[in-house]
Protein backbone atom coordinates (compact mmCIF):
# COMPACT_ATOMS: atom_id res chain seq x y z
CA UNK A 1 0.00 0.00 0.00
CA UNK A 2 1.35 3.40 -0.99
CA UNK A 3 0.25 6.00 1.52
CA UNK A 4 0.57 9.76 1.84
CA UNK A 5 0.96 10.93 5.45
CA UNK A 6 0.34 14.54 6.47
CA UNK A 7 0.91 16.27 9.80
CA UNK A 8 0.17 19.93 10.48
CA UNK A 9 -1.41 19.52 13.91
CA UNK A 10 1.61 20.56 16.02
CA UNK A 11 4.99 22.24 15.53
CA UNK A 12 5.75 20.97 12.04
CA UNK A 13 4.41 21.06 8.53
CA UNK A 14 5.21 17.60 7.17
CA UNK A 15 4.30 15.16 4.45
CA UNK A 16 5.70 11.78 3.49
CA UNK A 17 4.92 9.07 0.97
CA UNK A 18 5.60 5.53 2.12
CA UNK A 19 5.31 2.06 0.78
CA UNK A 20 3.95 0.29 3.82
CA UNK A 21 4.68 -3.31 2.79
CA UNK A 22 8.38 -2.68 2.18
CA UNK A 23 8.58 -0.07 4.97
CA UNK A 24 10.33 2.36 2.64
CA UNK A 25 9.95 6.11 2.63
CA UNK A 26 9.66 7.18 -1.00
CA UNK A 27 9.78 10.91 -0.31
CA UNK A 28 9.41 13.09 2.76
CA UNK A 29 9.82 16.64 3.93
CA UNK A 30 9.20 18.31 7.27
CA UNK A 31 9.57 21.96 8.24
CA UNK A 32 9.50 22.95 11.91
CA UNK A 33 6.98 25.75 12.46
CA UNK A 34 4.51 26.95 15.06
CA UNK A 35 2.43 28.96 12.56
CA UNK A 36 2.21 29.37 8.81
CA UNK A 37 1.20 25.76 8.03
CA UNK A 38 -1.48 26.95 5.61
CA UNK A 39 0.96 28.77 3.34
CA UNK A 40 3.66 26.08 3.62
CA UNK A 41 1.72 22.86 3.18
CA UNK A 42 0.75 22.93 -0.50
CA UNK A 43 4.16 24.00 -1.87
CA UNK A 44 5.67 21.28 0.34
CA UNK A 45 3.22 18.70 -0.92
CA UNK A 46 4.00 19.75 -4.49
CA UNK A 47 7.76 19.27 -3.90
CA UNK A 48 7.35 15.91 -2.19
CA UNK A 49 4.94 14.48 -4.75
CA UNK A 50 7.24 15.58 -7.58
CA UNK A 51 9.68 12.93 -6.31
CA UNK A 52 7.09 10.15 -6.46
CA UNK A 53 6.76 8.10 -9.64
CA UNK A 54 3.14 8.13 -10.68
CA UNK A 55 2.37 11.21 -8.54
CA UNK A 56 -0.90 11.53 -6.65
CA UNK A 57 -2.64 8.90 -8.75
CA UNK A 58 -0.26 6.20 -7.50
CA UNK A 59 -1.55 6.63 -3.93
CA UNK A 60 -3.79 4.08 -2.24
CA UNK A 61 -4.63 6.03 0.87
CA UNK A 62 -4.06 9.29 2.77
CA UNK A 63 -3.38 9.35 6.52
CA UNK A 64 -3.52 12.59 8.48
CA UNK A 65 -3.00 13.59 12.09
CA UNK A 66 -6.36 14.74 13.44
CA UNK A 67 -5.30 16.17 16.81
CA UNK A 68 -5.37 16.94 19.57
CA UNK A 69 -3.26 19.94 18.65
CA UNK A 70 -3.68 23.38 17.15
CA UNK A 71 -7.32 23.66 16.03
CA UNK A 72 -6.31 25.66 12.98
CA UNK A 73 -3.31 23.48 12.20
CA UNK A 74 -5.17 20.20 12.27
CA UNK A 75 -7.95 21.59 10.09
CA UNK A 76 -5.38 22.50 7.42
CA UNK A 77 -3.96 18.99 7.25
CA UNK A 78 -7.41 17.41 7.32
CA UNK A 79 -8.72 19.74 4.59
CA UNK A 80 -5.79 18.80 2.37
CA UNK A 81 -6.04 15.07 3.13
CA UNK A 82 -9.77 14.98 2.42
CA UNK A 83 -9.29 16.96 -0.79
CA UNK A 84 -6.64 14.51 -2.02
CA UNK A 85 -9.02 11.66 -1.18
CA UNK A 86 -11.88 13.36 -3.03
CA UNK A 87 -9.79 14.20 -6.07
CA UNK A 88 -8.48 10.70 -6.68
CA UNK A 89 -11.17 8.58 -5.04
CA UNK A 90 -9.17 6.93 -2.24
CA UNK A 91 -9.86 6.76 1.50
CA UNK A 92 -8.55 9.36 3.95
CA UNK A 93 -7.99 8.09 7.48
CA UNK A 94 -7.30 9.93 10.71
CA UNK A 95 -4.54 9.17 13.23
CA UNK A 96 -4.50 10.89 16.61
CA UNK A 97 -1.37 12.84 17.43
CA UNK A 98 -1.20 11.09 20.81
CA UNK A 99 -1.14 7.60 19.30
CA UNK A 100 1.38 8.63 16.64
CA UNK A 101 3.65 10.09 19.34
CA UNK A 102 3.52 6.93 21.46
CA UNK A 103 3.75 4.41 18.65
CA UNK A 104 7.57 4.12 18.50
CA UNK A 105 7.62 3.00 22.17
CA UNK A 106 4.74 0.57 21.69
CA UNK A 107 6.37 -1.44 18.93
CA UNK A 108 7.83 -4.21 21.09
CA UNK A 109 5.37 -3.70 23.92
CA UNK A 110 5.84 -0.75 26.25
CA UNK A 111 8.60 -1.29 28.82
CA UNK A 112 7.18 1.21 31.28
CA UNK A 113 4.24 3.53 31.72
CA UNK A 114 4.23 5.74 28.59
CA UNK A 115 2.69 9.20 28.54
CA UNK A 116 2.10 11.40 25.49
CA UNK A 117 1.48 15.04 26.32
CA UNK A 118 0.72 18.12 24.22
CA UNK A 119 0.55 21.63 25.64
CA UNK A 120 -3.10 22.75 25.87
CA UNK A 121 -2.18 26.11 27.51
CA UNK A 122 -3.08 27.36 30.97
CA UNK A 123 -1.14 24.64 32.80
CA UNK A 124 -3.07 21.89 31.02
CA UNK A 125 -2.10 19.22 28.52
CA UNK A 126 -3.80 16.94 26.06
CA UNK A 127 -2.70 13.62 27.43
CA UNK A 128 -2.87 9.86 27.04
CA UNK A 129 -1.07 7.21 29.13
CA UNK A 130 -0.59 3.50 28.49
CA UNK A 131 0.75 1.08 31.10
CA UNK A 132 3.44 -1.58 30.59
CA UNK A 133 0.74 -4.22 30.12
CA UNK A 134 -0.80 -2.17 27.30
CA UNK A 135 -3.64 -1.05 29.55
CA UNK A 136 -5.03 2.46 29.05
CA UNK A 137 -4.15 4.38 32.23
CA UNK A 138 -5.29 7.81 31.08
CA UNK A 139 -7.63 7.92 28.14
CA UNK A 140 -7.15 10.90 25.78
CA UNK A 141 -8.37 14.06 27.53
CA UNK A 142 -7.36 17.53 28.69
CA UNK A 143 -5.92 17.58 32.19
CA UNK A 144 -3.87 19.85 34.42
CA UNK A 145 -0.23 18.83 34.66
CA UNK A 146 -0.69 18.26 38.37
CA UNK A 147 -3.56 15.83 37.78
CA UNK A 148 -1.53 13.94 35.19
CA UNK A 149 1.31 13.44 37.65
CA UNK A 150 -1.15 12.27 40.33
CA UNK A 151 -2.27 9.51 37.98
CA UNK A 152 1.21 8.22 37.22
CA UNK A 153 1.87 6.12 40.32
CA UNK A 154 5.45 5.82 41.56
CA UNK A 155 7.17 3.71 38.88
CA UNK A 156 9.34 4.79 35.98
CA UNK A 157 7.59 6.80 33.24
CA UNK A 158 8.47 7.40 29.57
CA UNK A 159 7.40 10.81 28.30
CA UNK A 160 6.82 11.80 24.68
CA UNK A 161 5.27 14.76 22.87
CA UNK A 162 5.70 18.53 22.89
CA UNK A 163 4.25 18.71 26.44
CA UNK A 164 6.60 16.06 27.84
CA UNK A 165 9.06 18.50 29.44
CA UNK A 166 6.21 20.12 31.37
CA UNK A 167 5.20 16.75 32.82
CA UNK A 168 8.82 15.73 33.47
CA UNK A 169 9.54 18.74 35.65
CA UNK A 170 6.42 18.19 37.77
CA UNK A 171 6.94 14.39 37.97
CA UNK A 172 10.57 14.65 39.02
CA UNK A 173 9.61 17.15 41.70
CA UNK A 174 7.60 14.40 43.40
CA UNK A 175 10.32 11.79 42.96
CA UNK A 176 9.07 9.96 39.84
CA UNK A 177 11.76 8.56 37.51
CA UNK A 178 10.74 10.37 34.30
CA UNK A 179 12.52 9.39 31.09
CA UNK A 180 12.21 12.16 28.55
CA UNK A 181 12.29 11.08 24.89
CA UNK A 182 13.61 14.21 23.20
CA UNK A 183 13.47 12.50 19.81
CA UNK A 184 9.71 11.88 20.09
CA UNK A 185 8.46 15.45 20.40
CA UNK A 186 6.56 15.51 17.10
CA UNK A 187 4.66 12.76 15.27
CA UNK A 188 6.90 10.62 13.06
CA UNK A 189 5.30 10.50 9.61
CA UNK A 190 6.39 6.90 9.09
CA UNK A 191 4.31 5.97 12.12
CA UNK A 192 1.38 8.08 10.98
CA UNK A 193 1.50 6.12 7.72
CA UNK A 194 1.80 2.73 9.43
CA UNK A 195 -1.07 3.38 11.85
CA UNK A 196 -3.09 4.84 8.99
CA UNK A 197 -2.45 1.84 6.79
CA UNK A 198 -3.71 -0.52 9.49
CA UNK A 199 -6.82 1.55 10.27
CA UNK A 200 -10.35 0.84 9.09
CA UNK A 201 -11.40 3.80 6.90
CA UNK A 202 -14.99 3.57 8.19
CA UNK A 203 -13.82 3.92 11.79
CA UNK A 204 -10.68 6.05 11.71
CA UNK A 205 -12.34 9.04 10.07
CA UNK A 206 -10.24 11.96 8.89
CA UNK A 207 -12.16 14.39 11.08
CA UNK A 208 -10.84 16.68 13.78
CA UNK A 209 -10.21 15.25 17.23
CA UNK A 210 -10.27 18.47 19.21
CA UNK A 211 -10.74 17.16 22.78
CA UNK A 212 -11.90 20.67 23.72
CA UNK A 213 -15.17 22.47 23.08
CA UNK A 214 -15.23 25.81 21.24
CA UNK A 215 -14.85 28.72 23.57
CA UNK A 216 -18.33 30.22 23.22
CA UNK A 217 -21.35 30.66 25.42
CA UNK A 218 -24.95 31.32 24.40
CA UNK A 219 -25.85 34.96 24.92
CA UNK A 220 -29.15 36.15 26.31
CA UNK A 221 -27.96 39.22 28.17
CA UNK A 222 -28.73 41.72 25.43
CA UNK A 223 -32.39 40.88 25.18
CA UNK A 224 -35.06 43.16 26.63
CA UNK A 225 -37.92 41.85 28.74
CA UNK A 226 -41.03 40.99 26.82
CA UNK A 227 -44.65 40.82 27.93
Amino acid sequence: MRILAIDTALGQCAAAILDVASETTIAAEAIAMERGHAEALLPLLDRVMARVDGGFHSLDRVAVTIGPGSFTGLRIGISAARAVALAIGIPAVGVTTLSALMAPLMEDGPKRLTVAAIDARGGRVFVQAIGPSGRLIIQPCVMTIRDVVRNLGSGSVALVGPGATMIAAEARAVGIDAVLHDDLVLPDLAWVARIGAAAEPDEALAKPYYLAAPDARPQDGARLARL
Binding site: D46, F56, F71, R75, S79, A80
Partner: peptide, 19 residues
Protein backbone atom coordinates in the same frame (compact mmCIF):
# COMPACT_ATOMS: atom_id res chain seq x y z
CA UNK B 1 -13.32 34.46 9.26
CA UNK B 2 -9.80 33.02 9.09
CA UNK B 3 -10.68 29.51 10.30
CA UNK B 4 -13.18 28.95 7.51
CA UNK B 5 -11.06 30.67 4.87
CA UNK B 6 -8.17 28.29 5.58
CA UNK B 7 -10.42 25.25 5.19
CA UNK B 8 -11.85 26.42 1.86
CA UNK B 9 -8.59 27.70 0.42
CA UNK B 10 -6.56 24.64 1.49
CA UNK B 11 -9.20 22.38 -0.03
CA UNK B 12 -9.17 24.37 -3.29
CA UNK B 13 -5.37 24.44 -3.49
CA UNK B 14 -5.16 20.70 -2.94
CA UNK B 15 -7.78 19.95 -5.60
CA UNK B 16 -5.94 22.28 -7.99
CA UNK B 17 -2.61 20.60 -7.25
CA UNK B 18 -3.90 17.05 -7.62
CA UNK B 19 -6.03 17.70 -10.71
Amino acid sequence: LIGGLLVGLTTAKTLALVA
